[in-house]
Structure formats: structure tokens, C-alpha cells
Computed example of a mutant assay.
Amino acid sequence: MFKVSSADGTTIAYDRSGSGAAVILVGGALCDRASTAPLAQQLSKHFTVVSYDRRGRGDSADTSPYSVAREVEDLGALITALGGTAAVYGHSSAAALVVEAAAAGLPITKVVLHEPPYGPDDDASQRESDQAGAKVNSLLAQDRRTEAVQEFLTMAGMPPAAAADLAAQPGMAEVAPTLAYDFAVMDSAGPGGRIPFGLLAKVTQPALAVCGSASPPFMIDSARAVAKALPGGRLVELEGRHHVVPPEVLAPVLTEFFEA
């Protein structure tokens, strides 16, 4: 494990493996660096790969109050530690964080956005999303962490029984407060979690949007719209795959893109 200090002094923990051009993997909601480690293992055959704990997770520290800009600075500190440039992969809500970072001008060479969960633009969908998010944040405010995780997973489309089982797993209660951070990232990119077309227009790096054909329809729609909105964007749809893709399936897609 390595550590780097972000601009506000927060310590960010990361693992580094492989050699070659730098690639940073950014995990989504409820994920720490262990979540991206299997993908890192696959990619490290070709690249120098970093998996890290976003602030408030795992071995990384945290500093109040939370700010999306501080998370962008965390990513910037990692890029500096890797020599000054890196390609960046973001999964789910972390894809929205990568959009923020790339649009802010961080020295990112290539961008991969894996199913950013931007919501539909209609008012009914926005109200439903806002209400669900408010319920999760309310549960967190009451320190009802397991219930907050279960509510979030159900909101994301997981069957209630499976959501309850996963929410009760070790470590979930500890990382639950960072759900509020992911909601902040999504709302920062576009009010109500809408697709931030203006922000995407500022992402001028070569960019790849990825989705699975078996994922929730709104995530597929989001990936398609994002690919069209990115100035240098293209889309890869993985046939029969869900929101979480086995690393041995995903790694060749990313390798091809990063090496092109």
C-alpha cells in the first residue's frame, strides 16, 4: 500500500502494480480499492495500474466538509504521484467523478466512463430519483447505515432480498456514509443527476463509454447519450453483460482502447 497527500492534506491510500503507461481505476458507490483490484491485476500485464480508496473509504482519510472539488484534487494528487499524466477509468457514479476531473483540466490522457448512472430528463423520473436520494440521506443522518445501503441498492435496481443480504455484509456499514458523497457527485455534474451535456463537451480527451446489454435500461441509455455528447467519444456495448463486468471480459476492451 502507498499513500499520497491531497491538496487539503487528506491522506489517500492506493495500490500500484505493473509497468508502462499509467492507468487509474476509480470505484463507484460502496467500493474501495479491493473492488477494482481484480481488474487492476488484469491490466497490470500492460500498464502501471493504480487502485485507490476514495476519501472516507478503506485506508484513506477524510476531511469535513465534503466537496466534489476535493475528490477531483485527490485524483490529481494520484496523477502527480504517477508522473504527471494518466488514463482514468470510472465505474458507475465514479464515472461522473471522472467527467468532473477531465472537464476541470486534470492531465488525463484517456477517459473510460462505465455506465455513468445519469437519470432520465423527465420530471417524473427526477422526482422519483430525488425522493429516493433524500430517503438514503435521511437514513444516514439517523446513523441507520445498513438500512441506507439497502435503500440505495434497491433504488439502483437490485431485488430487495439481494439488497438486504449485501447491505448486511461486513464493511458495508463502515462505507455507508460515503453514499452521500456519490449523490453529491451526481448532483454536481447535472442537477438531479441529469446528463451534464455542458460538462461533457469540455472532455476533449479520447473517451470511451461502456455499457452492458443486460444492464438497467436507463444506464444503457445514459452510456449511449454520453458517448454521443463527448467530443472524442465512442461506445462499446458488452453483449449479455450487467453493471458489473468480469475483469477478464472488461480488461481486453480497456487494453485495446488505452493502447490505440
Rank of each mutant, 00 (worst) to 15 (best):
P159F: 04
P160D: 12
A161T: 14
K135N: 14
P160V: 14
Q142S: 15
A189M: 06
A162S: 11
R194Q: 11
A132N: 00
G157Y: 06
M219I: 05
N137T: 06
E115N: 05
E100V: 04
E128T: 14
A168G: 07
R194E: 07
V112H: 11
A163Q: 04
G198L: 03
V185F: 10
P206E: 05
R145A: 08
I195C: 12
D123S: 14
S138I: 00
I195R: 15
V111H: 13
S125C: 00
G198W: 07
P116Y: 12
D182N: 13
K135C: 05
A167H: 03
P177W: 08
T146Y: 08
R194S: 06
P117R: 09
M158P: 07
S188F: 02
A141F: 08
N137I: 02
N137K: 14
A184V: 09
A162G: 06
E147H: 01
A148M: 01
S222Q: 07
V111A: 10
S125G: 13
A180R: 15
P206I: 03
A214R: 12
D182T: 00
E115I: 00
L153A: 09
E115D: 05
M219E: 10
D143H: 14
V112Y: 13
L199V: 02
D123H: 11
P160N: 13
D130Y: 03
A176G: 13
G157R: 02
E115A: 06
D143E: 14
K202E: 12
